[in-house]
């Protein structure tokens, strides 16, 4: 008996890492091969990828099902506008500060929301988002209920030349998506992540661990809030206009994000990536249908939850045994 070894990476995962690096290199070079409209679209895609990945960490791994992440998207957006307009902070720096501010404001909020059990937590997060929306609508300096536009000077302040400016905005979006993915992957590979996965799979264990898991959930909630705020700041930097209804829209920042995670596969790293691609394919082909398109999204999400709760990636992984981004360690016995 030669014993056994512990493996984490698999042949597919090493191949994936290589492909991912190539894709990343191509995406970094996008300003030189893609058109302006494509860059904008990619920026939007990266934003949704980041939001879905972060939501998935909350709901799929930590058991915190939120329907109120628009609170942080909008908060980040408004923070960017306030920082850039009133303090003259460089917009790209403002994204970072908005992220930190979002995490800080989540620290007192989380313990309050955690008092709501299970599904009621979800609705509580929505109330929070409404509090944010109604509060920002009261701030007349930020345009009150009708909102504000980002002064042209702020945008040209990023870089005077248009190509450089647009490239920098694009790279920021890419950086945010990569950061969100890297954060989730590294977290799930850490001891904390292993604990989270174990807890997700056993409710009894999570009850017996008590305070330890409470702190872990707090840490995850707060860091997700920070990264979501940074994403929100970017989204409204790209939109150039903000209003309470757009900033705290449950449809845009939660319904779509949940749809992405659900069809891709909740509780997997690959799910939100696949879901984002599918979502944008659907949007580009069906969005003209308006309300019908949204009803289709709702119906597809319900169908997936009922028939294939692990989503598209779950089906693929089951059929092929692939794990592109290995989280778990496997015990390997020599033949």
């Amino acid at each position: 008996m030669a014993g056994f070894s512990i493996q984490r990476s698999t042949r597919t995962s090493r191949a994936t890492a290589l492909v991912a690096l190539l894709v990343l290199a191509a995406l970094v070079a996008a300003p030189w091969w893609a058109g302006r409209a494509d860059l904008r679209l990619l920026g939007e895609i990266f934003s949704f990828l980041a939001l879905a990945t972060l939501w998935n960490l909350l709901a799929g791994y930590t058991g915190l099902v939120s329907v109120g992440q628009q609170a942080y998207v909008g908060f980040g957006g408004y923070a960017l506008f306030a920082l850039a307009m009133f303090l003259g902070v460089h917009p790209l720096l403002a994204i970072v500060i908005a992220g930190i501010a979002g995490a800080l404001i989540a620290i007192p909020i989380a313990p309050l929301l955690f008092r709501l059990q299970g599904a009621y937590f979800a609705i509580g997060t929505w109330v929070l988002a409404e509090v944010f929306r109604l509060s920002f609508a009261q701030v007349s300096a930020l345009g009150g209920g009708s909102g504000a536009s980002l002064p042209a000077g702020v945008v040209t302040g990023i870089a005077s030349e248009r190509f450089v400016r647009e490239a920098m905005i694009y790279w920021t979006a890419l950086a945010i998506a990569v950061a969100a993915l890297a954060f989730v992957i590294l977290l799930l590979r850490s001891r904390t992540g292993l604990a989270l996965t174990a807890l997700r799979d056993s409710e009894i264990a999570s009850e017996s661990l008590g305070i330890g898991i409470w702190r872990t959930k707090l840490a995850v909630y707060v860091s997700v809030a920070g990264l979501t705020s940074a994403t929100g700041a970017f989204i409204f930097l790209q939109k150039l206009r903000i209003s309470p209804d757009a900033a705290f829209s449950v449809n845009d920042w939660t319904a779509y994000v949940i749809f992405i995670a659900v069809i891709g596969g909740i509780g997997t790293i690959e799910g939100p990536i696949i879901g984002t691609i599918l979502f944008f394919l659907l949007r580009e082909t069906l969005a003209d249908l308006g309300t019908t398109y949204l009803m289709i999204l709702g119906a597809v999400a319900i169908l997936v939850m009922l028939r294939a709760p692990k989503g598209v990636w779950g089906i693929i992984a089951e059929r092929t045994g692939w794990s592109l981004v290995p989280i778990r360690r496997r015990v390997v016995f020599p033949q």
Partner: peptide, 21 residues
């Protein structure tokens, strides 16, 4: 927790847009 919550969320989206249409 997730499945019933998300199914009702989907129903909500369908109802709202159905009424809108």
């Amino acid at each position: 927790l997730l499945s019933p919550l998300l199914v009702t969320f989907g129903i909500s989206v369908i109802l709202q847009n159905g009424l809108l249409a």
